Amino acid sequence: MKNQPIYNYQREMDKLRTRFHFDFVSMALVQPAEDRFVLTWQYASGNINERYKRIVLHSGKGIAGMVFKTGKPMLIPNVNADIESRDLYNYPIIVAEQLKSLGAIPLWEGTRVMGVLLVGYRKENMLDQKAFASFQEGIGTEFGAFYAKEVSRP
């Protein structure tokens, strides 16, 4: 078994936030918990508090849960227009970090989604489809131990 180099995800979060001028960048990872898997936000850059550390999501719940379940990126250009205010409790990271425009991508390990990378702004309409696509292209295929895009390998 090859030794994987230690990857400093916190440093990468900081670099992504600076490079793309995001207000907030975070990574959620799958945590095994009593035969069911949950997602927790493990790393963050630009956070306004530590509440993200206490958020626990199940597959299909919240942004990370939906991206994890579907394996597809998710873009919310304007939280106020795209999510009913009464439904915001389903998106605790949006509330905790006061995000108004955000996107999330799955992080793959082999053929399974093992994490979610979320990027966002605290102003509306800062992240549109074009900017989100540029971000995804800009981070490249590999992201530490993960693949930032679904890749078919022989």
Rank of each mutant, 00 (worst) to 15 (best):
E84C: 07
L88Q: 10
M126A: 12
G120F: 11
V113P: 05
G71Y: 02
K100R: 15
G110V: 00
G115M: 04
P77F: 00
I94A: 05
L99F: 03
V67M: 05
Y91H: 06
L107E: 04
L127E: 10
G110F: 02
G115P: 06
A81D: 14
E97T: 06
E84N: 12
E109W: 10
G120W: 07
P73G: 02
G115A: 07
M114S: 14
L107V: 03
E109L: 14
V119E: 01
S101Y: 10
Q98C: 03
R112T: 13
L127V: 13
R122D: 12
K123V: 04
D82L: 03
Q98M: 09
R86V: 14
V79I: 13
G110L: 02
V67D: 04
L102P: 05
I83S: 14
I83N: 08
L88D: 05
L99E: 12
L118Y: 11
V79K: 05
R122A: 11
E124R: 11
I94E: 07
V67R: 06
R112M: 09
T111R: 15
M66L: 11
E84V: 14
N78S: 15
L99T: 04
I105W: 03
I93E: 01
N78Y: 09
L99M: 13
L127Y: 08
V95C: 10
G71Q: 04
N125D: 15
L75V: 04
